[in-house]
Amino acid sequence: MSGINWILAGFAFVIVAVPLLDILYTVLAKGFSALSFKLFTEVTNGISGGLLNAITGTLVLVAGALLIAVPVGVLAGIHLSEFGRGRFGRLVRFLDDVLTGVPSIVLGYFSYVTLVIGMGWQFSMLAGSITLAIMVVPYIARFTEIAFSQVPNNLREAGYALGLREFTVITRIALPLALPGILTGALLAMAISLGETAPLIYTAGWSNFLWSGRLIHEPIGYLTYVIWSFINQPYRSAHALAFAAAFLVILLVLLTNVAATSLLRRTHPIRPGR
């Protein structure tokens, strides 16, 4: 009797694992056969050409998002860990959770209303990066908080006993020990930003050209747009580009995730008294 139940549980795992492996196989196989040197040297031309504009655009958007989100998230995480025991800390921790649950399209529309239309930035790199940043700040804050709370208190006390100020104790003693955890959070935030589509359609727009460096008033291309938009075109060249873009996105996302997980596994919380 019990045996059947275990087989059912194992079967549940199999029907989840098979589609995942098929997703990876489909994207990697079809994407790999669509790879060519041209992808990295030419910009998109209608529904053919290369992906240089999209590749650089994705990297620019993600870098911009992390430039905004990492400082904000890390500072917020330090505050939650070191001074966040009160009611305000509990409230922020709770709202931090709620913010991770807001659908990305809602964030995209919010930025569209405020930045693209309201501020008159039009589709632009800055609008896209800010939207991604709002999405990932909660993750970075939470990882930073966990990393700081794992630093043993006697190390902080030793610092204070030497007469160090609060700022020095946090930045010179706690921060170096918490750094791997913070880095893990930043890498996961990067993986999330790399794969996002919906919030960018409304904020970054799309461009066939290389980004010229303007923060506003200029749309910018990105890889996930190619996947969504080109697969709907009835042309072989468009499908090839979509799969090539998916190949690059999934490769970047998986590599970032593996880096984040291995970093997490390798860092053990420091035992007090070592």
Binding site: G195, E196, T197, T224, V249, I250, V253
Partner: peptide, 13 residues
């Protein structure tokens, strides 16, 4: 890993 796959890739599949 299933949680890490971007939603647009699920869409493509």
């Amino acid at each position: 890993l299933l949680a890490a796959v971007p939603s647009v890739v699920y869409g493509l599949w």
